[in-house]
Simulated scan of single mutants.
Amino acid sequence: MPAMTRRALIVALTALLLTGCGVPVDDAPRRVSGRPGPHNSPVAGDADSMAGRANESLCFVRDDRLGTVVRRVDYLPDVDTHLRHLLAGPGNTERDAGYTSALTGTASVAGARLSGGVAEVEVGGAGDETGRSDQILAFGQIVCTLTSRADVHGVTFRRDGQPLDVPRADGSLSRLPLTAIDYAPLIGRR
């Protein structure tokens, strides 16, 4: 292809690309709303999340099984606050529906932070040596609650900054990141 024709072709293609791709231009900025459904849930720190409503899933115990309740909140809180909501226990309506918490009297939870998609939960005091039969349910509540979030892919537990072995549904201990699958046999059916 001659240099002149190639140059003309490049200029024509450049002009075509610069004229746009058919997206209309507005006179003023406009708010873009996401599509409805679970893929549009706000995450902590989202500036626009205050304007919408979000689902906060919390895992409690009913009939010796793990069960999830969903609370409507203005925005999904950060991981530590979400955990604090779980630790506060079921509300009146949830208690009336038969939900309780195995967290009272088991591991003392100091807080949580998110690191690379893994929620690291710091526990103090009682932990792996309590001997309580509901200890598996307690750890399951935390894991199932935090992994219900789109930004959490697993949960680990630490005591004094050191990894802590915690029980899974089958009674085996693990210090690897846990997910709801590790507690699947304990999750109640609706």
Rank of each mutant, 00 (worst) to 15 (best):
residue 5 T to G: 00
residue 80 D to N: 13
residue 21 C to R: 10
residue 65 R to A: 15
residue 94 E to S: 04
residue 41 S to E: 15
residue 13 L to M: 10
residue 72 R to D: 11
residue 12 A to K: 06
residue 132 R to P: 00
residue 116 G to D: 02
residue 4 M to S: 15
residue 114 L to H: 01
residue 94 E to R: 02
residue 101 S to Y: 06
residue 141 Q to Y: 06
residue 27 D to F: 03
residue 177 P to H: 03
residue 135 Q to M: 12
residue 183 Y to I: 05
residue 156 T to P: 08
residue 73 V to W: 03
residue 184 A to Y: 02
residue 60 F to G: 06
residue 32 V to H: 11
residue 15 A to P: 01
residue 121 V to Q: 00
residue 124 G to P: 00
residue 38 P to D: 15
residue 181 I to R: 14
residue 169 A to Q: 02
residue 173 L to Q: 07
residue 181 I to A: 15
residue 2 P to D: 14
residue 97 A to D: 10
residue 58 L to K: 06
residue 61 V to A: 06
residue 189 R to V: 12
residue 128 D to L: 08
residue 24 P to Y: 01
residue 45 G to C: 06
residue 48 D to E: 14
residue 7 R to G: 14
residue 81 T to I: 12
residue 41 S to D: 14
residue 148 S to K: 00
residue 51 A to F: 15
residue 121 V to Y: 01
residue 50 M to C: 13
residue 29 P to E: 05
residue 155 V to S: 03
residue 142 I to R: 00
residue 164 L to S: 06
residue 165 D to A: 10
residue 89 G to E: 03
residue 71 R to N: 13
residue 30 R to L: 11
residue 150 A to C: 01
residue 13 L to P: 05
residue 147 T to Y: 08
residue 38 P to S: 15
residue 55 N to C: 11
residue 29 P to Q: 05
residue 2 P to I: 11
residue 129 E to D: 11
residue 60 F to C: 06
residue 27 D to N: 09
residue 19 T to Q: 12
residue 37 G to K: 03
residue 164 L to P: 04
residue 110 A to R: 05
residue 52 G to S: 11
residue 79 V to E: 03
residue 135 Q to R: 09
residue 83 L to R: 04
residue 61 V to T: 07
residue 43 V to M: 12
residue 110 A to H: 00
residue 188 G to K: 05
residue 162 Q to H: 14
residue 40 N to L: 08
residue 15 A to M: 12
residue 52 G to I: 05
residue 175 R to G: 03
residue 157 F to E: 04
residue 60 F to P: 07
residue 71 R to F: 07
residue 26 D to F: 05
residue 182 D to P: 03
residue 26 D to C: 07
